[in-house]
Design a protein around this nucleic acid. Structure first.
Length: 567
RNA sequence: CGGGGUGUAGCGCAGUACGGUAGCGCGCAGCGUUUGGGACGCUGAUGUCGGAGGUUCAAGUCCUCUCACCCCGACCA
């Protein structure tokens, strides 16, 4: 490809809208251009990278016995009604809906469980056909409330999504690690370090799932890691050792005046007790405004995802003052004692320890010596606490670390959630019809591209890993007014291509500075320079993008030199 | 959906307090000189100042409405 005719130009200045480094570089290096919020075009350079990423995913999926196929982006609403997701609160408005000219309700696919399960119902009859895995590399559309960070969080994106079908859970359990390993291979081959963590399965449902997280301050997820024992988990799901509050002889309930102490910190200090001897009340409401009272030991915080899961996955928001008033709760002094009209979900941290301080449901007053279950009852006791940096690991007791990460891939054991609803069954050996047991596996291609840049750049630009670089060789000719140089560069360009290299040839009439800066920005692994100077020595100047040194290589040795780089 | 911000040439920005002929840098086109880290000179083109109303002799600037985009939060397979 001659740079003089490449569609898409590099930008010298950072576009004002881009804050994230991968966003800035993908715009400046002419990989992508924005069309609307969270919707991008890929320019030729970006598309070449994306295709390389896709090819790596394809090879790893094929190696895991996957069969590539393609399913539509536009899907009938009835498929989504069948699984209940059309009307469910989640995904809700993220599922873009519209009508075609025949007034049929349609959606833009945000994932393909519905379509693939319907296909499986059609095509799979017998256990003899199982297990199998199909995958596609296809556009998804999710009408996110807010896109951000360039390609990191978008509305329209290309995803590699795979679906496996099994006779039973044991078969899925056996297959799942192969995909897990394939994912590790994919990220490694793409030059990104991704950490697999245990994850919450969210609206996808299912029994187990893992996310592949790329460490980045930009990340929207928090991971909890234990360096000591290797426990790695999304904070949404992380468990930790909570320890126990003090236990002593149970004392009689006592109401005390605690003016101006609407926070745990304040009331603990006022009464001279540790925070872990207090009970904290947190209120969240469902979409209908019904208040949930979450009760947890004062030194811990509520994890909204765990709380939501404890309630069967309902959507929750922080309760408004109005919602609290309606059920007679005094914010800041709320008490589990005598509370009515709300569901009380308690963290298991309050089942050990005695004589806690809790609110009196009256401004300016708390209760001392509150004991469960003597003084109050709850609807459910479970783990609803969020793990924080420094909390002890539940498995080994060592301190946990919290880090930010970008979710680059996600694998789920779905079980029969979709197949049962769609009626996708097969006949087992014993002649009985059983729902297919499913797994699903996704990686966002564009997000992965952004992650690659996040982890592979320097102050001058992108430093592509060889595996995904848009071209292998960036050929720079200096002195385009010198016919001898032009001729030599043209010959080298043709020769490199004839032996199979992907070459970006900077044949523009630009100064050396412009050409070198663009080469650094675009980040192709090998830079070859041809000039009057190199020709005098019948050599080519060679430089690797990740290395500062340049090397003169005799023209006759160039091919051998390149072989060592791409070996 | 709440809070904050920005829309002026392809990109980055000034001009808006106080209304009076729309500017700068880069980029782009032509000519010439340059050619190893974002060269130089000369000449030139490009704007419905996001949009619609309004006030005024006169609006990029004032008023009203509206749209788009960015950031924080809510949300998120």
């Amino acid at each position: 490809m001659r740079l003089s005719t490449l569609f898409g130009r590099t930008l010298r200045e950072v576009p004002a809208d881009a804050e994230v480094i991968s966003h800035q570089l993908s715009l400046r290096a002419a990989l992508i251009r924005q069309v609307a919020a969270g919707i991008y075009s890929y320019l030729p350079l970006g598309w070449r990278v994306l295709r390389k990423i896709e090819q790596i995913m394809r090879e790893e999926m094929d190696a895991a016995d996957g069969q590539e196929m393609s399913m539509p982006v536009v899907q009938p609403a009835e498929l989504w009604r069948a699984t209940g997701r059309y009307d469910a609160p989640a995904p809700g408005p993220a599922l873009l809906r519209f009508k075609d000219r025949g007034e049929h309700e349609m959606v833009l696919g945000m994932t393909h469980e519905e379509v693939v399960t319907a296909l499986a119902k059609l095509e799979i009859d017998s256990y003899r056909q199982l297990p199998l895995m199909v995958y596609q590399i296809q556009t998804k559309f999710r009408d996110e409330p807010r896109s951000r960070g360039g390609l990191i969080r978008v509305r329209e994106f290309i995803m590699k999504d795979g679906y496996s079908f099994h006779t039973d859970a044991a078969s899925l359990d056996e297959y799942y690690p192969r995909i897990y390993q394939a994912y590790i291979n994919i990220f490694k081959r793409c030059g990104v370090q991704a950490i697999p963590v245990e994850a919450d399965s969210g609206i996808m449902g299912g029994s187990a799932s893992h996310e592949f997280m790329v460490l980045s301050e930009m990340g929207e997820d928090t991971l909890i890691l234990c360096e000591h024992c290797g426990y790695a988990v999304n904070a949404e799901k992380a468990q930790f050792a909570k320890g126990a509050a003090e236990s002593s002889a149970v004392l009689p309930l006592e109401k005390v005046a605690t003016p101006g102490t609407s926070s745990i910190q304040a009331v603990a200090a006022y009464l001279g007790v540790p925070e872990r001897q207090t009970l904290k009340a947190v209120f969240m409401s469902d979409p209908e405004g019904k208040v949930v009272f979450a009760l947890i030991r004062g030194d811990l915080d509520v994890n909204p995802v765990k709380l939501s899961n404890a309630l069967g996955g309902v959507e929750l928001h922080a309760s408004t003052a109005e919602e609290l008033k309606r059920v007679g709760i005094v914010a800041g002094y709320a008490s589990p004692i005598g509370v009515k009209n709300v569901r009380v979900i308690a963290d298991d941290s309050l089942t050990s320890g005695t004589n806690f301080v809790a609110g009196a449901n009256e401004a300016g007053y708390h209760m001392k010596n509150v004991n469960y279950p003597r003084d109050f009852t709850v609807d459910l006791v479970t783990d609803i606490a969020i793990a924080r940096s420094g909390d002890p690991c539940e498995r080994c007791g060592q301190p946990l670390q919290a880090k930010r990460g970008i979710e680059a891939g996600h694998v789920f054991k779905l079980g029969t959630k979709y197949s049962a609803k769609v009626g996708a069954t097969f006949l087992d050996k014993d002649g009985s019809a059983k729902p297919l047991v499913m797994g699903c596996y996704g990686i966002g291609a564009g997000r992965l591209l952004a992650c690659i840049i996040e982890q592979n750049h320097d102050e001058r630009g992108i430093v592509w890993p060889r595996s995904v670089a848009p071209f292998q060789v960036h050929l720079v000719s200096l002195g385009t007014n010198n016919p001898v140089v032009v001729e030599a560069a043209d010959v080298l360009y043709q020769k490199l291509m004839s032996v199979g290299y992907e070459v970006l040839y900077d044949d523009r009439q630009e100064s050396a500075g412009v050409k070198f800066n663009d080469a650094d920005l675009i980040g192709i692994p090998v830079r070859l320079t041809i000039s009057k100077r190199t020709l005098e020595k019948t050599s080519v100047e060679c430089k690797l993008r990740w290395d500062d040194t340049v090397e003169l290589v005799a023209q006759s040795d160039l091919e051998a030199w390149l072989v060592t780089i791409f070996a």
